[in-house]
Design a protein around this nucleic acid. Structure first.
Lengths: 212, 212
DNA sequence: ACGTGTGAACCGATTCACAGCA
DNA sequence: TGCTGTGAATCGGTTCACACGT
């Protein structure tokens, strides 16, 4: 990582994740050499953008030739940190939480659902998609024990802030928030919001002004 | 809408949606006058940003005073287009799709799940959360009939592109895509992606470089 | 005096244009 | 020649600073 201190755009990480997906697809198709154009062809990202993004971290291609697919996969995984397995916790096993528990995509990215919590006694102890639901009171213990740093928050909006605080106190450092609430947390905790309502309202807005 | 042609930032619509949520909360709490600071206090957005965002569409406040909460709510709903009801379709009623069917937040934003589709004969005809699952072959008919313009795509990745194309052909103009696939569609179709894997990978990346 | 509305300054990110290397 | 890597130019969006209206 030569240029560690060069102020890397926020979006770069997100795009790296897309490149990775595209590269894996190419690799699965037997391609082992690809140009920046090949990688971005179906991605809504320009080849230049890919090259610039990679340039923040080093030189991974061969001029006049392109990129070795598998080695670029490995390099991006290393940059993103997904070259090792991360355990994640799911807080809130309602409809959405259960769906997430069964989501097959996680392990593809070296993410492993290590545990799930709910406050509803009717759910605690049940096993969904191979994961035993723990009582929320065991949060601290389980999270420490399994050294979990990332949580998915899928509790109802009213409980989101409180649960997020608990997670942070137990050592969780990053939260993927599905609740339609802006979480207020110490700023060394990273939060990503998945806000369906906002997305849909933005779509409605775009539909209304068909211009652009 | 005085300044219709002033090139409005993409993010403005998303933020308007957040303002709306905040304003509704204030209104529910009996507040009927609020400053830009009051509205953005728990939002991770600066008061200046709110004022600038609103300024693209007109003048809604009173200088030296603030904003009338209910009238600003109405104005933003009008800007976003959520002052009328929009029917939406859900394509793909797997775990995630079912969870979305039961999501209570939709109607809060004047979005109404009008119909749901699946290709699995075992599911077709069933009623989930009050919505009858239609066979995918009835797509065109139902979408035309109910004049649906917005769809939520929650089919497996392999089927996403094909289903999206069908939706577009049937008159759907905006798609909220949950599949980890970049949809390639005519550019008058609006697509928003909810990409869990990308979000999680970005979080891992941030965790790795704890600086910033 | 106070909070909005907004042109101008600033800042970050993308795109351009081309140098560098296989 | 072909495609990468990157400083420089450009673009868009946010923030600043203050004029304006109540």
């Amino acid at each position: 990582m030569p240029k560690s201190k060069k102020s890397i755009p926020q979006e770069t990480a997100r795009r790296l994740s897309l490149y990775l997906r595209s590269l894996k697809r190419l690799r699965a198709g037997g391609v082992n050499l690809a140009s920046s154009e090949d990688v971005t062809k179906f991605l809504n990202v320009s080849p230049t953008q890919l090259r610039k993004d990679l340039s923040y971290f080093g030189e991974f291609g061969k001029r006049g030739v392109g990129y070795d697919v598998s080695s670029l996969v490995k390099n991006i995984e290393k940059i993103l940190g997904t070259d090792t397995v991360w355990g994640i916790a799911i807080a809130g096993v309602g409809k959405l939480g259960s769906a997430l528990l069964g989501y097959p995509g996680f392990f593809e990215f070296n993410l492993k659902i290590s545990t799930a919590f709910d406050s509803d006694p009717a759910k605690v102890g049940k096993i969904i998609a191979g994961i035993k639901i723990e009582d929320i009171s065991r949060l601290k213990q389980v999270i420490r024990e399994k050294n979990i740093k990332i949580a998915v928050l899928s509790v109802p909006g009213e409980a989101a802030q409180e649960t997020a605080e608990k997670l942070a106190q137990c050592g969780v450092r990053a939260i993927l928030n599905f609740a339609p609430v802006n979480l207020v947390l110490p700023k060394d905790i990273f939060v990503s919001n998945v806000d369906m309502a906002t997305e849909l309202e933005s779509l409605v807005y775009k539909l209304k002004r068909k211009d652009y």
